[in-house]
């Protein structure tokens, strides 16, 4: 396929060349994909890279103006989406805090079939803005803090011995 330079990595589809299934929730995969390294062409899996929404009747809806950033994904709906459960084109992991905003209104998503889903009381009109925002998990922040404190204490305790070793060698 050719070699890669800085410029081509700025082209968004470049990041769709290999769709690895490693570390995905298995519920988001069809049975055969559980042994494959990359996503299959099955519609159930393809709604993820195609950024499609799945409504309560399992109908797929396209999206537009998809933007991906470190903390959030945002896109606009193309057609009218009926009320009820709406499955989003994003993987869902239980234990991770994610907020979903539909036209600025906050929804707490649940995880359905390995993907994020929200319950719509009202239908969603075309050109509505959906934002998916992730947060740093508390358990990650606390455990990293413990790691840092442990390490700093250890450096403090070990410094005299390390210095002694270093002096011996000079």
């Amino acid at each position: 396929m050719g070699s890669v330079n800085d410029r081509i990595t700025q082209y968004q589809p470049f990041w769709y060349l290999q769709l690895y299934t490693d570390y995905m929730p298995t519920d988001a995969l069809i049975k055969n994909s559980k042994k494959e390294r990359t996503l299959s062409t099955d519609p159930k899996e393809q709604l993820l890279p195609n950024h499609q929404l799945s409504d309560a009747n399992k109908h797929l809806h396209g999206t537009a103006q998809f933007h991906a950033q470190l903390k959030s994904l945002d896109f606009r709906t193309v057609d009218k989406i009926p009320s009820g459960q709406l499955v989003l084109p994003t993987l869902g992991y239980r234990g991770l805090k994610v907020d979903v905003y539909v036209n600025g209104v906050r929804h707490s998503p649940k995880v359905t079939q390995g993907k994020l889903a929200i319950d719509n009381r009202h239908s969603i009109s075309p050109n509505s803005l959906i934002v998916i925002r992730q947060h740093i998990p508390l358990f990650s922040a606390i455990s990293l803090l413990i790691s840092l404190i442990t390490f700093l204490c250890l450096i403090f305790l070990a410094f005299p011995f390390t210095l002694q070793l270093f002096k011996l060698n000079n």
Partner: peptide, 30 residues
């Protein structure tokens, strides 16, 4: 690519920016 541009990027669990942009939790498992 997902880590560039923000010094705390490694703490955000889901990869929204690459690998299909659908949020694989690479920063947790890697």
């Amino acid at each position: 690519s997902n880590l560039s541009g923000n010094s705390l990027a490694f703490l955000y669990p889901q990869n929204f920016q690459t690998l299909g942009q659908f949020g694989v939790a690479t920063n947790i498992f890697y």
